[in-house]
Design a protein around this nucleic acid. Structure first.
Ligand SMILES: [Mn+2]
Ligand SMILES: [Mn+2]
Ligand SMILES: [Zn+2]
Ligand SMILES: [Zn+2]
Lengths: 155, 155
DNA sequence: ATAATTATTGCAAATGATTTGCAATAAGGG
DNA sequence: CCCTTATTGCAAATCATTTGCAATAATTAT
């Protein structure tokens, strides 16, 4: 049984909820999938194992996970205003989004703490969380655009 | 005539577009308003001067401004997935959002450049833009929550 | 000025994403 | 195995935004 499923089971138990086959399926997919699926994408994957699974169940499960802080919800500016769900358990990490191919690369930095402190000190607010999004060209797209513009390879 | 209006006029001229009364009104509001209105909020303000103005005109104007890089569009995670429009001309700045009262405070930092460089160097991507969102309690809400929990004032 | 051209508007209907009400189903405690 | 009621699937509703189209108005040419 994977991490998310057991985490969730525990919380369900403590709040009189029930671990259903639908939830178990969705949780196990979320746990193993190293991506940021939309609700639809998650549904499509899950339907390979449970063809009757319904989209509203997917949403209800995701919203519950969100409330339990077991997934975070992101709106990468990819044109759409469709939510993507990030099951990486509460490790604070950030995202680079390629403006050409929309690929997402996760990254980490310890400089955000400094920014938080900087802002707290200058404003009097108290900062809990923070997230950074970077936009640009991923290594592949960058390579391609250089080749296209100059005919040259890059080192 | 304010900055946004003249900027926009210029661009419209160069692309065979027309400066209409609706656009002039919306632009002047956006230019003076120091906030991040939604399309609806902007409509409500504008209707004080032009009661017949339509929401689709507001959206069309905002989308054009977006394409011209004269406004940026943000989706602060305030529960809603409604877009907010930021007319602050292309100065790169960031946002703190109070999780209690949803107030937004803008801030600046030079540490993001370091983060960009750090990521570029380690990944091989090229980063164009980036944005930071911080979440927590604004000074007022923080004050209130301390008073409420401890009965004490804070220095 | 006046007329001709066509970008832009207001309106209504369409779309895309997510949410909700409700009757039927199925966890899980006794 | 039975009960209670949390959860599901389905359909309809809602929210935010977009689109088609005929009417209108900003420019340009006369
Ligand atoms: Mn992630
Ligand atoms: Mn801003
Ligand atoms: Zn790419
Ligand atoms: Zn606040």
């Amino acid at each position: 049984m994977n991490e998310l499923v057991s985490q969730a089971s525990e919380r369900l138990r403590s709040q009189g909820g029930r671990m259903t086959s639908q939830r178990r399926l969705l949780l196990s997919i979320l746990d193993s999938l190293g991506e940021h699926p939309t609700a639809e994408e998650l549904l499509l994957i899950a339907r390979k194992q449970d063809p009757d699974l319904n989209l509203s169940t997917v949403y209800r499960t995701l919203r519950w996970l969100e409330a339990e802080n077991l997934v975070s919800t992101r709106l990468f500016a990819e044109g759409r205003r469709q939510e993507r769900f990030d099951a990486a358990l509460p490790s604070e990490h950030h995202h680079f989004i390629c403006t050409r191919c929309k690929n997402v690369i996760e990254f980490d930095t310890d400089l955000l703490d400094e920014i938080k402190t900087q802002f707290q000190d200058s404003s009097g607010a108290s900062v809990d969380t923070g997230s950074i999004e970077l936009y640009g060209l991923c290594p592949d797209c960058r390579q391609r655009s250089i080749v296209q513009e100059t005919g040259m390879e890059v080192g």
